[in-house]
Structures are given as C-alpha cells and as structure tokens.
Amino acid sequence: MGYSINGTEVEADEQGFLLEPLYDDEAVRVIAQAENISLTDAHWEVVNYLREEYREHGHTPNFRNMLKGFAEIHPGVDSKYLYDLFPIGPAKQGPKVAALPQPLGKGGY
C-alpha cells in the first residue's frame, strides 16, 4: 500500500501508515482524504502537535499523554473533542493523517 503525493509514490504499511515521516502538508491532505476526513484548522493543530512530538521524542504519545499534552496548549480540550476530529482513535488515526509512522505499542509512549 502507498500514497501518491506530489506525483511520487510514498510507501506505507498494510494499515496505511507511512514507513518514514513526511512533513509535507500535501501528504496530510492525501492521507486525510483516504481516511474520509475533511481537514479543518482544528485538525491541523493536532497534526502539528503530533509532528512536534514525533520530532522531539521519535514517536507519538499514547492517547492519555496526547490528551494531557494537547490540553496544556488548548485548555478545555477533552477526549470528545479529539475523537470528533479523529473518530477511529486520535492516538492512531491522528499520526496516520499527520504522515507519521505507526505509533509504538498501543498508540505511542
């Protein structure tokens, strides 16, 4: 499986996660479309948060840490907010849409 991004085939695993991170915004658009997600500014905030976490730690956070970390940036954010954006699961579908590799274990650290 893979995605065509800017005319280039990019490899993904059998679940649709990129094998290597790709920090191209077009990758986010292509993967979001494949996931039937219409991107909003709120999606981009989560995508940028996950990309920053990946750059800093080499992986993305599990849901609990994601909720805690994102709520520090955006007070009042709760699990419903994140699930409304990424209904399959914010800690799994979020990194996929962010064009990051599959999270470790059950959705990150």
Rank of each mutant, 00 (worst) to 15 (best):
H57T: 10
N62Y: 04
P61N: 13
Y54F: 15
Y49L: 02
M66G: 04
K96A: 08
P95H: 14
L100R: 13
N48R: 14
D78P: 00
G69W: 02
G76H: 14
G107F: 00
P90D: 08
L67N: 07
P90R: 06
L67T: 05
G89F: 12
Y49K: 03
L82R: 02
N48A: 12
A98W: 14
D78K: 11
H74G: 04
L104T: 06
R51T: 02
R55G: 00
A91Q: 08
E52Q: 12
A91W: 12
P87D: 06
P103K: 03
P61A: 10
F70W: 13
K80E: 12
P95T: 15
V77P: 00
G94S: 03
Y81I: 05
N48Q: 15
F63D: 02
G107A: 03
D84H: 14
K92Q: 06
N48Y: 15
A98L: 11
G89W: 03
G107Q: 01
F63V: 05
P87L: 03
K68G: 00
D84V: 10
E53N: 09
G94H: 05
N65H: 11
N48L: 05
G76M: 08
I88G: 05
K80R: 12
K92T: 02
R55E: 06
Y83A: 09
K68M: 10
Y49R: 02
F63C: 05
I73Y: 07
K92L: 13
K92E: 12
G69K: 07
L50I: 05
E52R: 14
V97S: 08
G89E: 03
F70Q: 04
Y83K: 07
E72W: 09
V77H: 03
G105R: 09
P101F: 08
L85E: 07
D84F: 15
D84I: 12
K80N: 11
Q93H: 02
E52V: 05
R64Y: 11
D84A: 15
L82N: 09
P61K: 14
M66P: 00
Q102T: 03
R64H: 07
P61G: 11
H57I: 08
A71R: 10
T60V: 11
D78T: 04
N65I: 11
I73N: 08
Y83W: 14
K96W: 04
K96P: 02
L85S: 11
S79Q: 11
